[in-house]
Amino acid sequence: MDNGPIIKLENVTKVYHQGKINVTAIDGFSVAVDKGDFTALCGPSGSGKTTILNIVGALDVPTAGRVTLEGNDLADLSRTALSTMRRDRIGFVFQAYNLIPVLTAYENAEFVLALQGMPERERRARVMEMLKEVGLEGLENRRPEELSGGQQQRVAIARAMVTQPAVILADEPTANLDSATAASLLSIMEHLNISHGITFLFSTHDQRVMDRARRIITLRDGKLAGDERKG
């Protein structure tokens, strides 16, 4: 299991039914992502990036094809097993509105650890360290509405990272940020990828973000249109 790819999609197809119309969002897509990769998923709007991330993160099920995460076929897992897997093995970062509005930055980052049942003291140490790593020291007690977009995304990344998951899936994490903020968020992601060995798979439209990925997978109309490795 350790030797194989951490994420593997084989011939994945996703068809949405919208009334009488069938929308094929993903069409026979296959790809494998290795452990420790820092991969960007690119493509025009509507090409299927979000759909792929949702399927990998077990938030959505493919119409056909096979998805494995750390060697586990997602189709074999129960609802409970899937939610445990999301909790313990996957970190999610969305484009916006990531955080639970009634919880502070600290509590948002702590949320998943609390779901895991980790003791308070241990939680505290981990969360404080993580918030420091993403540069949010001193902002622990702010509510999301009291943080800038970039700061909110950093809380989301801290929340995703703090459980030390196998994979972080990020759907256009920089789309709502100005370029300086986007660049600093990317630096944080790169740093975490290198120092903690966490696999990143993120979607983006942004050329400057693509430039910093080590692998770029391009989608077009739900099909693989390019797969480029750098370095």
């Binding site: 939610s83 999301r86 909790r87 969305f94 998943v112 779901l115």
Partner: peptide, 16 residues
């Protein structure tokens, strides 16, 4: 809905 969706995505169980 959206908030609950995020909570489910980060690993809250439906029971939670």
């Amino acid at each position: 809905k959206r908030e609950f969706g995020v909570m489910l995505a980060v690993g809250s169980s439906p029971l939670f």
